[in-house]
């Protein structure tokens, strides 16, 4: 797992207060919702709030596009990386 992916996995565990889940248990490529971790739509809202708080990421109104970033730890890590690249230029 990449360092940023590990960080994102930890962010998910902390934000959602998940019991019985460790960073090492989360496959960065596996789906977070429904299958995989089995998160629900309320978790998606919580993660959206958390992303804004921790990384300053505001999701755009093109919902189908932005919510693709929630598919997996890898996708979220890519979102954070892109945001940082955009923010520094």
């Amino acid at each position: 797992m990449q360092p940023l992916e590990q960080e994102i996995a930890q962010f998910i565990i902390d934000t959602l207060n998940l019991e019985d889940v460790k960073v090492a248990d989360i496959d960065p490529g596996a789906p977070l919702f429904v299958k995989g971790l089995g998160l629900d739509s309320i978790d998606a809202l919580e993660l959206g709030v958390g992303l804004q708080k921790k990384y300053g990421i505001k999701l755009s109104s093109d919902a189908t596009e932005t919510r693709k970033h929630f598919a997996s730890v890898q996708a979220l890590a890519a979102l954070v990386t892109n945001h940082r690249a955009g923010a520094s230029t």
Binding site: S41, A44, L45, Q52, S60, D62
Partner: peptide
């Protein structure tokens, strides 16, 4: 379902929002 789509819908014209605590308390601060 998501704040970004709700904002878009409420901005695009006169509107009334039918919601619930689950969504209202998770609006981005």
């Amino acid at each position: 379902e998501y704040p970004e789509e709700i904002e878009q819908a409420l901005r695009s014209g006169p509107s009334v929002l039918i919601s619930s605590p689950a969504h209202l308390k998770r609006l981005p601060e």
